[in-house]
Design a protein around this nucleic acid. Structure first.
Lengths: 201, 201
DNA sequence: TTGTCATCTGTCATGGACTGACATAATCTA
DNA sequence: TAGATTATGTCAGTCCATGACAGATGACAA
């Protein structure tokens, strides 16, 4: 990796960190692009060469996490039922975060706090999840061998499950991967309890 | 109702209609507030006295529909199980639209086309649904006698069901209330099939 | 009818998000 | 080191959104 590429990556991370800190400190709405750019000693115009919008920088960690999830999903064995594969991929993604750089972990949890505290960003996260849902649907349809209403329902149920699991996190749990894991497991268990056997086949 | 109030209502509807027509004609992004205001012969500043944002005018019909739904939900007998009450309220809301002014129907379907065609607005609709979900959750918790994870799951499942039902609509079905109804019933039937008996109790 | 009050509206000025165009500066490559 | 690529800064401009103020309009009582 050349110097140019390394520098770009460094600037990108610096922008994310500066933005998240400012968002947490003085709120998302009252933080300007100029402030973020100034904190990294970069022109405001350059900010927009790294991120398409103010929202995008706040959601960057969430976007990265989704990529990890999709990669985990891709690695699941084809024998697993659709929902099992999705749940396992989610566990895998959480594990990647747990065993990764502490720096990345802190950044992710900071981003989650910003998301929780800012309705606009929260809606943006929904948009992200919906975009992701299209790709998840493909995987579900592949495993079920049918791209029908039922595949859509399985996919939507997974999205809901994750959402309920995450929303349920209190502030303390939000700053702790293990708390997040527990919430997630509780919700998966509930799905198991309320669905008829083989519902996702 | 006085003249002043009637005038305000008329301006509001005119703004919505002008906005929807422009959005459909030339796209949401490339339509400016100035254009909408000019079409109704009103100053741009006045637009923002009726709607808090450009997005809000596009979602006005959806917001009104949600209010109808909540009102229907409020009228459901307390003996119904949570999900049954929600499904019946949805049927009621669709019926209100079907039996209402043709003008209102056309506006609603136009708005739905705009929502489908515009990612930003689509995300906004999600935000609306989530805000609504809080009130739906209260009703579910009341009927189940418990504000717990399971109530949240029932609520989220309902939201997913509606979402899947609506997303599944093709363009022809989108311009037809009956097609919309059929999709919805198919999805409700699927929930009935995949959930264990009494899952929402 | 008229005068007063509340409310609605237009105008103006401003700030902040975002974009295109162009010149400069930094890296890369031969 | 020269020349090609790519990143960055500067500048100008559009659009969304909001506050402040003044003028217009409907509401209402005497």
């Amino acid at each position: 990796m050349g110097l140019r590429e390394r520098k770009k990556l460094k600037t990108r991370v610096a922008l994310i960190d500066a933005a998240l800190d400012l968002f947490l400190e003085q709120g998302y709405e009252s933080t300007t692009i100029d402030q973020i750019a100034a904190a990294v000693d970069v022109s405001p115009r350059t900010f927009f060469r790294y991120f398409g919008s103010k929202e995008e920088v706040a959601l960057a960690p969430a976007t990265d996490a989704q990529d990890v999830f999709l990669s985990e999903l891709h690695d699941r064995p084809g024998t697993e039922s659709p929902f099992t594969a999705l749940a396992q991929a989610m566990r895998g993604a959480v594990a990647v975060l747990r065993d990764g750089e502490p720096e990345d972990k802190r950044r992710f949890l900071k981003a989650r706090q910003v998301v929780e505290a800012t309705p606009t960003i929260f809606a943006g996260q929904m948009r992200l999840m919906l975009a992701n849902e299209q790709r998840i649907l493909e995987e579900v349809a592949r495993r079920r061998g049918a791209d029908d209403l039922r595949s859509q329902f399985v996919t939507a149920t997974f999205t809901s499950t994750i959402r309920v699991g995450l929303e349920n996190c209190t502030l303390e749990e939000l700053s702790d991967i293990d708390g997040l894991t527990r919430r997630l497991e509780d919700t998966f268990a509930l799905v198991d309890e309320l669905m008829v056997a083989g519902w996702d086949r």
